[in-house]
Lab assay of single mutants.
Amino acid sequence: LQLFIKTLTGKTSTVEMEPSDTIENLKAKIQDKEGIPPDQQRLIFAGKQLEDGRTLSDYNIQKESTLHLVL
């Protein structure tokens, strides 16, 4: 599924993920695209901070969801 990652600067990146992927996997993919180390990334979806060990489906993240990346 395609996700949009929006940064505080207003920049939006697109990443392709599976519902079974963990937040950790997602942060690794963001690191590949943006060069931001996972330990500096905080991802927010629906007002919640996402935890590394959980999966996208745990948070009911659907295709074309927008996640907010806070550093």
Rank of each mutant, 00 (worst) to 15 (best):
D21A: 11
I23Y: 01
T22G: 03
P38F: 13
I36W: 14
A28E: 09
G10D: 04
L67P: 03
I36E: 02
E64N: 15
L50K: 00
S20K: 08
T55H: 06
L69N: 00
L1T: 04
H68L: 15
D58F: 15
T7R: 12
K29E: 04
I44C: 10
L50G: 00
P19D: 09
E24L: 14
Q31C: 09
D32S: 12
D58R: 02
Q40K: 09
R54L: 12
Q40F: 09
S13A: 12
L8H: 14
T55G: 03
L43A: 00
Q31A: 14
Q31Y: 15
E51C: 07
K27Q: 02
I36L: 06
Q62G: 13
E24R: 13
E16A: 10
R42I: 15
K29Q: 06
E64T: 08
K6L: 11
R42P: 00
H68D: 07
T22A: 03
I30L: 09
Q62K: 12
K63D: 15
T55N: 05
K27R: 06
E18V: 11
P38D: 04
I30P: 00
S57Y: 08
P19E: 09
Q62P: 10
H68S: 07
R54Y: 13
P38W: 12
E24S: 13
T22Q: 04
K63L: 06
E16W: 15
T12I: 14
I61Y: 03
G10T: 03
K48R: 11
D32M: 13
D58A: 06
P38E: 07
D32P: 02
I5W: 03
L8G: 10
L8M: 13
Q40E: 11
K27F: 02
H68R: 07
L71Q: 09
K11W: 13
L8E: 14
Q41N: 02
P38L: 13
E64I: 05
N25C: 08
R54G: 07
E16G: 07
G47I: 01
I61G: 02
P37H: 12
D52T: 05
A46K: 14
I61Q: 01
Y59P: 00
Q2F: 12
G35P: 02
D52F: 03
L56F: 07
S20P: 03
L43E: 01
T55L: 11
D21R: 03
L8Q: 14
K29T: 06
E18W: 13
T9F: 13
V70S: 09
T22V: 05
T9H: 13
L50Q: 00
I44E: 09
R42N: 11
A28Q: 13
E51G: 04
K33A: 12
E18Q: 13
L71R: 08
E34K: 07
E18D: 12
P38K: 15
T55C: 04
I23V: 12
T9I: 07
E64A: 11
E64F: 15
Q40H: 11
E51V: 06
D32Y: 11
L43P: 02
S13I: 15
N60I: 05
T12N: 06
E34S: 12
T9C: 13
G35S: 05
L50W: 01
E64W: 15
I23C: 02
P19M: 09
A28D: 06
I61F: 06
A28Y: 12
N60G: 14
K48I: 14
T9E: 12
T9V: 07
A28S: 10
L1F: 14
S20Q: 10
P19T: 08
Y59M: 03
D21C: 04
R42W: 11
G10C: 05
T66D: 03
Q49I: 15
K11F: 11
L71F: 10
F45K: 02
Q31R: 13
Q49F: 14
T9G: 13
S65M: 08
T12Y: 11
R54C: 08
V15C: 03
E18H: 13
